[in-house]
Design a protein around this nucleic acid. Structure first.
Lengths: 106, 106
DNA sequence: GACATGTATATACACCTTGATATATATTAA
DNA sequence: TTAATATATATCAAGGTGTATATACATGTC
């Protein structure tokens, strides 16, 4: 999960992920879409690949990259677990103060 | 969203977020829990704060930090949108190949 | 086999962030 | 006011990461 976050934090890689969300793309197509050099794209694709976020398949000289569900699913679940933040009624600060008082009373 | 990812990608900040999920904490409590120096914690808290992911309130000399829902909610929604990845039936690669053939036929 | 296209890797370098240390600020209490 | 506690900021060295360029590799075509 930590690795997925680190990988996604880089803007070019984030853009590649956004691009691949529309379906698989060859390296050349990604280069065209992002306007950065081919070696950069290949490097970022390798990092994405090592993080298990994409896979590639060959079609002649083309390498077709597509997203892999796993890491995204994992992060999706992690962020789901934060939903208490915007669903919780009781203000967390008030809660802290209650605990704080308790400790003082001991 | 990009900023949130960048901020979370740093392990110490990730740990601070995980810690604050259990409720607000003072800087000193975070220092104890993570075992890193106080200046580091303050620095990371400032970065988290600038990313809008935490807020602080004062209680005497204490600064009580707590999570802010916004950025987490935003990322939660973003990752939700990837659910097609693990729900989709049709293999994306096959889809790409179909498009590829179409282009060749032109 | 020679060549063109598509992709991957290697190297060098600049930059940014983390981490360590010292110091400054704020709040409370005596 | 002085001291003590809690927190924030400044400075700087070290390490990691992205970028540019050149080059190597793979596949298909002539």
């Amino acid at each position: 999960m930590q690795l997925t976050l680190l990988t996604l934090a880089e803007p070019n890689r984030f853009n590649i992920v956004e691009l691949l969300r529309n379906g698989p793309k060859s390296v050349g197509e990604i280069v065209q879409a992002l306007g950065i050099s081919q070696p950069h794209v290949s490097r970022h694709l390798r990092i994405l690949s090592e993080a298990g976020m994409v896979r590639s398949r060959s079609k002649a000289q083309l390498r077709i990259y597509s997203l892999e569900a796993g890491p995204f699913q994992e992060l999706d679940e992690w962020f789901d677990s934060f939903s208490i933040l915007w669903e919780e009624r009781l203000d967390n600060f008030e809660e802290y103060m209650l605990d704080y008082k308790k400790k003082e009373d001991l």
